[in-house]
Amino acid sequence: MISKKYAQPLFMILMSLGMSVIMSGVVVAVNTGISDGFFFRWGYSLMFAYPIALIAAFTLAPLIRPLVNKIASKE
């Protein structure tokens, strides 16, 4: 098991990976169709999408967390 202090970064790494897999797959399927070479195109797209999603997650989280804390009720 990993330390609890790494839970948030690990969450952002895995969440951005999952979202990148789904979004790149959908965008590739919509733009080029599911035909020969789909998985190659999907992998190629994912190779660029994941680092961008990861950087966005780590950059935006500190900016968005206070906004969510203001919006969310204190129940």
Rank of each mutant, 00 (worst) to 15 (best):
Y50P: 03
P51M: 04
V26A: 10
I71Q: 10
I71S: 10
F58M: 06
G18I: 01
G18F: 04
L60S: 08
R41I: 01
R65V: 09
L63E: 04
M47Q: 14
L54P: 09
K74L: 12
S16M: 01
P66S: 07
K74Y: 12
G43H: 02
K70R: 15
M23C: 07
S24H: 02
D36W: 07
M19H: 07
T59H: 08
G18P: 04
A61F: 12
V68W: 11
L17Q: 00
L14Y: 06
A53M: 14
L67Q: 11
E75K: 15
A49D: 04
I13D: 01
M23D: 05
L46F: 15
F40S: 12
P66I: 05
F58S: 05
L14P: 03
M47D: 08
S73G: 15
V27Q: 09
G25H: 09
F40W: 10
T59F: 12
I34Y: 06
L60R: 05
R41M: 05
G18N: 01
A53D: 09
N69T: 08
E75M: 13
F40A: 12
I22V: 12
A72Y: 13
V30N: 06
G33I: 05
S45A: 15
K74C: 05
I52V: 15
F40V: 12
T32S: 14
L60E: 02
Y44Q: 11
S73A: 15
A29W: 05
G25L: 04
I64D: 08
D36M: 06
I52F: 14
V30H: 09
G43I: 03
I71F: 15
I34K: 07
E75H: 15
R65H: 11
V30E: 06
W42I: 01
V68T: 11
A57V: 03
S20F: 01
